[in-house]
């Protein structure tokens, strides 16, 4: 790294921040996401990490008060603590589902898009099978076949999610592979592997990053939806969707059980969407320089 290069890098970062700052909603999104990540990492130190197993029927269904600012649930657990502890489950699901989807998407999409022809045809028809099912229904089917657990929920979501990434990356590769710099790389005798991953992939990464950020919200929402209908982790893993689900029977008696996890889900996915929006503005090369 030369001095010039690192200077350019910092200028880039500064410029990016100046673009972000212009849009107040994006700033809001960033704040939400940062709080979310903070809670996911440090949540255990903020509240009693044993809350999920502390069942206390004396204090069940208490409305929000000074002791329990979000109230308590049907097992007498403090909802505020549960939500903070649940953040890590939701973030973990979102990050791992998206990263595995991207990984699979890159491998499949790049081969398909780069080589084209019959390879592309076969791979894309297989992808179409996955895309043809409504995502939530397919995830439900897979999750219910695999059984109720945290990993199975993730697995179900990955199986549903990768196909759209494969599609996007394939499209990017197809548009990039006709560009002169790819011809030039071929002409210089570089290997296909190198051209795919060293030359084309870095040029497709921005749209991918934007899509991934936007999708984080979608994954959180879908994961919560699945655990809401009972396909998520056990009640001792306070994932927000299952928290909301446990409150659904008490909707009229104790609406706060469902309300606060629901709001958390909403805010988290909204935050990622706003950041994704902001990233698109920042990373759009037409706005730069």
């Amino acid at each position: 790294m030369s001095k010039n290069q690192s200077k350019m890098f910092w200028l880039d970062i500064k410029f990016a921040f100046s673009l972000i700052k212009k849009n107040k909603l994006v700033v809001l999104g960033f704040i939400i996401v940062l709080i979310f990540i903070f809670l996911a990492i440090f949540g255990e130190f903020l509240v009693d990490p044993k809350t999920p197993s502390k069942i206390d029927f004396k204090n069940k269904l208490l409305p929000p008060s000074r002791d329990h600012i979000f109230g308590t649930d049907d097992n007498g657990r403090d909802i505020f603590s549960l939500i903070i502890l649940g953040a890590k489950y939701d973030l973990f699901i979102a990050v791992s589902v998206i990263s595995f989807s991207i990984l699979i998407g890159i491998i499949i999409g790049s081969i398909s898009g780069y080589f084209g022809g019959i390879v592309d045809e076969i791979i894309m028809r297989i992808t179409d099978i996955f895309l043809a099912f409504p995502g939530l229904v397919l995830a439900m089917a897979i999750a219910s076949v695999l059984g109720r657990s945290f990993t199975n929920l993730m697995l179900a979501l990955i199986i549903v999610w990768w196909s759209s990434y494969a599609r996007v990356i394939r499209g990017q590769f197809i548009s990039e592979r006709e560009k002169p710099y790819v011809s030039a790389a071929k002409l210089l005798g570089l290997s296909n592997f190198r051209i795919m991953f060293r030359h084309i992939l870095p040029n497709t990464i921005y749209p991918l990053l934007i899509l991934a950020t936007m999708d984080m919200g979608g994954v959180i929402l879908t994961a919560a939806g699945l655990s809401f209908i009972g396909l998520g982790p056990s009640p001792f893993e306070p994932e927000w969707g299952s928290l909301a689900s446990s409150g659904s029977i008490y909707l009229f008696q104790a609406p706060w059980i469902m309300f606060f996890p629901g709001i958390s889900i909403l805010l988290a996915s909204l935050g990622f969407n706003l950041v994704g929006d902001g990233l698109r503005d920042v990373l759009d090369p037409r706005l730069r320089r």
Binding site: K179, P180, Y181, S183, A184, A185, H199, N203
Partner: peptide
């Protein structure tokens, strides 16, 4: 410009 990879020195 088009025949140089924009992300490589």
């Amino acid at each position: 410009y088009a025949s140089l990879n924009p992300r490589m020195t």
